[in-house]
Amino acid sequence: MNFDALIDCFSASACVVTQISSGLIIGMLIFMVASGVTLIFGVLGVVNFAHGALYMLGAYFALTAYWVTDSFTVAVLAGAIGTGLFGVVFERLFISRVYGADVLSQLLVCYAFVLILDDAVKAIWGGDFLSMGMPEAFALPPLMIAGGFVPPFYAFLTAFAVASAIALAALLGLTRFGKIVRAAAVNRQMVGVLGINTSLVYALIFGLGAALAGAAGALAAPVRSATPGMGFDILIESFIVTVIGGMGSIAGAFVGAILIGMIRAFGTVGFPLATEGVTFAMMAVVLLVKPAGLFGKAGR
């Protein structure tokens, strides 16, 4: 523990800006994955334990696209769309069979896919770690803000995640599709009776959640090396975020992700060996005080 260092940091704007920005970056990637988890749980009632594997797929799709086209834009699109399409197929063929089943069978189906996908990635791309490297467009010196440093790529990444959050909120809050989704989350049968193809809605929601995870994987590819099993850590982190924010709440996932990011960013200054424990303790406290999460509706 080194609380002096933490106090020193808080009294220097350079440290505060730098650590806040790094907290945001860490949080935003987790948010991209967690938003999919929370969306799928909120609408489909499924806890998708395979979401980390989708993040991994996104990274590998993006790597391949980047090698072929040399374009980071294409890489991100490939990561998001490729993983989204995979998600739709996965939902139709497998997840759709365990709707309404208890969480145990859902867990098993997802776990089976984590095993299969990790192994498939190893078979296709090999077991060695792979690195994309920073695309030329972002190979710029960091921006200086109030004495703190913010790399352009991370500014882009944060903007991308915030834009995704806004787009997602708008999609669910303002469009007809959003209305259907919200209605289906409350009562699927009733929406079905109204002549709406709820299977399609479910598949699209799962695909959307998968696409978000895939985009996160693609965005992570330039700075994190890709290996089979890389989705393992971010899965647990996104669960923490989902629980803290409230299962089913996009806004909650956003706030929860930033919170975890900040704990990690300032924790590394003040209590580097306890940050992990602190995040789990926080999850426990939130569950005990407000089980539905900070932004969850009680009674879900």
């Binding site: 350079a14 650590q19 970056i25 992570a220 994190r224 850590d233 960013a265 924790g267 590394t268 060996l273």
Partner: peptide, 21 residues
């Protein structure tokens, strides 16, 4: 200063920015 990122943590950002300060 010493930083100990969690083993296999995919992200070093917070400990790297500590180097800057």
């Amino acid at each position: 200063g010493e930083a100990w990122p969690k083993f296999m943590a995919p992200d070093y950002t917070e400990s790297l920015t500590q180097v800057l300060t």
